[in-house]
Design a protein around this nucleic acid. Structure first.
Length: 217
DNA sequence: TCTAGGATCGGCT
DNA sequence: GCCGATCCTAGAT
């Protein structure tokens, strides 16, 4: 006689929007996708899926909000003026890799490197909705956090996906990788995207007003 | 070596 | 809506 089923079955979310097989069927965005103008990439990342594999299981989110950071000519960007350091080294590398950094000593932010070939630009993933692995996310975010608040900020998103500094530089285009970005079933269509100024970059002068924050309505 | 400040979050009022 | 937490990073000296 077997006792009661394991607790994990109870935390298995009843409302995952995508199944494991649907995730596997979604094609990984190829490196060429990222080797284009950053704003173009940012717009097309809306609706795409970030799939995270760990020993604990698989979590997938659909990207709903991003910000474009335009490299050496963008005062809000970590590589403005050609700045290059250990922290932002990943931005100087090939496109399609992760750039993860710690902010305020507390949180991590996930970026995707674009363009490549010594053009250090990136797209910051600001917000997403969980489409698979909700039980795991609930465990990571804690019981007091409402579902809608699981991934509605860059730091929260990293916690939900268990993304940390060890993921800095990770290749997002490799099927074997623990972190991949896949084409979303319902990618954003023209007219559903609103363009806003970026958050928290007041120090960047007029660049703070550039409408490089893209959000699904 | 020192110091100021930050691409945030969550608790409290 | 406000404010404190917390520590890494880059720039100044």
């Amino acid at each position: 006689m077997n006792p009661a089923p394991p607790v994990t079955q109870m935390t298995e979310p009843m409302d995952d929007l995508l199944t494991k097989s649907q995730l596997d069927a979604a094609p990984i965005l190829p490196r060429g996708f990222y080797q284009r103008p950053t704003l173009e990439v940012a717009g097309e990342l809306l609706g795409a899926l970030i799939v995270r594999r760990t020993d604990a299981g698989v979590v997938a989110v659909r990207i709903t909000e991003v910000e474009a950071y335009l490299g050496v000519a963008d005062p809000a960007c970590h590589t403005f003026g050609g700045r290059r350091s250990r922290r932002n080294e990943s931005m100087w590398g090939p496109a399609g890799h992760a750039y993860v950094y710690r902010i305020y000593g507390l949180h991590c932010c996930l970026n995707i490197v674009t363009v490549g070939d010594g053009t250090p630009e990136a797209v910051l993933i600001r917000g997403a909705t969980t489409v698979h692995g909700g039980g795991l996310v609930a465990d990571r975010r804690g019981p007091t956090v409402a579902r809608r608040s699981w991934t509605d900020g860059p730091g929260k998103l990293c916690r939900a996906l268990a993304v940390g500094l060890t993921d800095d530089g990770a290749d997002l285009c490799s099927a074997e990788g623990a972190l991949t970005v896949r084409r979303g079933a319902g990618a954003a269509t023209v007219g559903e995207v609103e363009r806003l100024p970026r958050v928290g970059v007041d120090y960047a002068g007029e660049a703070a007003d550039w409408p490089l924050r893209l959000r699904l309505k």
